[in-house]
Design a protein around this nucleic acid. Structure first.
Lengths: 133, 133
DNA sequence: GATACCGGTATCCTTTAGGATAGTAGTATC
DNA sequence: GATACTACTATCCTAAAGGATACCGGTATC
C-alpha cells in the first residue's frame, strides 16, 4: 500500500468538473440504487432463464435465507423487475418471473458476468504464478 | 404487491439447475465481490477521465467523508484498479489514477451508466404521467 | 399419527457500512 | 501569531444489511 515518493511534477486534475463525468456518476449511482445489495443482481440472473418457484430460487442461490429472499423479491417486484404469480394448486404454487422491462438489464448483466469470469481466472492464474516461486 | 390467484397450470421450473445459469451467477457474484458497496463504481467512473487528487475526488463525489474515501481507495488499490502516487511538492500532492487493468471494466461501466440514465428518465416520465391524472 | 413439503413470517442477533466530528503534521500565507 | 490548505487518521456512533432459528397453516404421504 505504501508508495514511494516520486519527484515528477504535479498532474493537473481537471476531470472532476466535467459535466460528462458528473452525468456518468449520476447514472451509475441511479443504477446501483435499485440494484443495491448482495442479492438483486444474482437473483435477476437466476430468473433469466425462466420462471422459478420460491424454493427453487433458494436452491439456485445456495445460501440465501427465506427472510432475505422474500424481502429482495418484494423490492424487485416494486421496481418492476419481477412478477409474482400464484397458482391455486394443492399445495399452492408461486412463481417469480422477470418482466419485459428487466430485459433492459441484459447487457449490464452480460458484461458483469463476463468480467467476473475473467477476473476469477486472472486471480487463479496469479495465485498459480505465486505458488510456483 | 398482492397478486390475484391464477387458475392456470403450474409452470415448470428447471432453469435453476442449468450449469450455464450457475456459471453466470458465480460470475456476477465474483464481480460484485470486488465492486461491492456504494462507492467503488462511482469512484472508478470519477477517475476514468484522468488522475485526481484526494480532495478533488471528494468534491467530485459530493458527499463522501474522508474516512470512507480513504478506505475505498485502499481497497481499489489492493485489487489493482487504482495506483496511488505521491509527489513531493509543498504541500505534498497525492494523485489516484486507474490502472490499465481497470480499463477491462469499461464496458461494464458504460452499460451500467447507460442503464441508469434511461432508468431515471423512465421514472421521471412515469411520474409525469401520474401527476397529469 | 408422524413426517415432509411449500411459501413464506416472526424474532432475535451480529456484522458491516457508512457517517459526524475532531484532530494531526507540515507548510505557507496574511 | 492566527489562519488555511492537504491528505489523511482516530474515535464514536447509527442504521441497515444480512443471517440463524423457529414457526405457521395447509396438504400429502408413509
Amino acid at each position: 500500500m505504501e508508495t514511494a515518493v516520486e519527484e515528477k511534477g504535479v498532474v493537473e486534475c481537471t476531470a472532476f468538473n466535467s459535466t460528462e463525468c458528473r452525468g456518468a456518476i449520476t447514472g451509475v449511482r441511479d443504477a446501483l440504487y435499485v440494484l443495491n445489495g448482495k442479492w438483486k443482481i444474482p437473483l435477476i440472473v437466476a430468473l433469466s432463464e425462466g420462471p422459478l418457484r420460491f424454493k427453487d430460487i433458494q436452491r439456485s442461490l445456495g445460501d440465501i435465507t427465506p427472510k432475505i429472499l422474500s424481502k429482495e423479491l418484494k423490492e424487485l417486484e416494486l421496481n418492476e423487475f419481477v412478477i409474482r404469480t400464484v397458482y391455486s394448486t394443492t399445495p399452492v404454487t408461486v412463481t417469480y418471473q422477470l418482466t419485459p422491462y428487466s430485459r433492459s438489464l441484459d447487457k449490464v448483466m452480460k458484461e458483469l458476468k463476463d468480467w467476473g469470469i475473467q477476473h476469477r481466472q486472472r486471480i487463479v492464474a496469479s495465485r498459480k504464478a505465486n505458488s510456483s516461486n
